[in-house]
């Protein structure tokens, strides 16, 4: 395995300092969070950063907290393992915790951060669909101050985001959601562990107590377009309707039409579309059935149910 090349290593202790180092340093600089993408790119893909700005010494960038209004803020440097086992996340949005647990191994998740996972902007990032289905916002800080946007608008393409030079993704924010919200994330991949998704589907539903009509529905897809995406047409099929198996099927069909997968070494575009169709349906029906997080050993059974 190739080794990393010499580089300048910076460890700022404030966001302002991190931005200044990056703006003064010019091209060839990379922010470093957990390093599970950056160091692999340096070893495997020939990336040679001239300098690296490690964000881990900046206080206040990590941690999970509940806001007064019931929203949840997740610091960008929070590790995926912390998201996976956080009692707040597991209790409120178990499918989000599960999506974090789908990434790599415990060793990887002890390093990989949720902000790094988003900023790396891989179309197959497991946490992205769950966050998109929760209407998550991204907060950035740079020389022009702070700005907040819908997470879906943060992504621009594979490996590309709207972050300006020197701008740091600082927080992900989940707005307050109805206590009745249920959700599901299905990662469909060749192997159950240590693999990338063929496709990922996250859904959230708020069902009316009286007649179980879909008061709100969100469907988000991973690995089937240049960026993680919402599927508004598939959502529209269900909005205000009572969820039935037929409507879930119809929604899945719509989702498979809305996405734009490519064929690559992992699978063909056609297979990805077919798997979006069936797994969107499954995710909707599983979410509506409830039952909370599924242990990984029974996921395969449930997925093929």
């Amino acid at each position: 395995m190739k080794r990393t090349e010499p580089l300048e290593f910076h460890q700022p202790t404030s966001l302002a300092e991190a931005t200044r180092i990056m703006l003064d340093g010019g091209p060839g600089g990379h922010f470093l969070a957990g390093g599970t993408d950056l160091v692999i790119a340096m070893k495997e893909k020939g990336l040679v950063p001239r300098y690296v700005v490690d964000l881990k010494r900046i206080p206040s960038l990590s941690g999970i907290r509940e806001e007064d209004d019931g929203g949840i803020t997740i610091g960008a440097l929070t590790t995926l393992r912390e998201v996976e086992i956080s009692p707040l996340i597991v209790g409120r949005y178990p499918f989000l915790a599960q999506s974090a647990a789908e990434v790599g191994s415990i060793q990887i998740r002890n390093r990989a951060t949720i902000g790094g996972n988003m900023a790396n902007a891989t179309p197959s990032a497991d946490v992205a669909p769950a966050l998109l289905a929760l209407d998550a916002k991204a907060k950035l800080a740079g020389s022009g101050g702070e700005r907040t946007m819908d997470l879906k608008d943060f992504f621009r393409g594979p490996g590309q985001t709207v972050a300006e030079p020197g701008e740091v993704l600082t927080e992900l924010h989940i707005p307050p959601r109805a206590p009745r919200l249920v959700g599901e994330y299905i990662k469909f991949s060749p192997r159950d562990m240590m693999d990338l998704a063929y496709i990922g589907v996250a859904v959230t539903l708020v069902l009316a107590e009286a007649d179980r009509r879909c008061e709100s529905v969100a469907i988000a897809l991973g690995a089937v377009s240049p960026t993680p995406m919402r599927a508004p047409g598939a959502e529209a099929v269900l909005q205000g309707q009572v969820l039935t198996e037929e409507l879930a099927e119809e929604s899945g069909r719509k989702a498979s039409e809305e996405c734009s997968p490519i064929s690559d070494v992992r699978s063909s575009a056609g297979y990805r579309r077919a798997m979006v169709r069936v797994n969107t349906k499954r995710a909707l029906l599983n979410a509506a059935a409830g039952g909370g997080p599924v242990p990984w050993t029974s996921r395969r059974d449930r997925r093929h149910a």
Binding site: F9, G35, I40, K43, V52, S105, I106, N110
Partner: peptide
């Protein structure tokens, strides 16, 4: 060292109490 890319776990050490892949940690940190 096994794979060198964080897949195999042969290089697992504890960093600040947590198991991590030492093949992906830079000395600068």
């Amino acid at each position: 060292e096994g794979c060198g890319t964080g897949d195999c776990g042969a290089c697992t050490v504890y960093l600040n109490g947590k198991p991590v892949n030492s093949c992906l940690v830079l000395t600068g940190e």
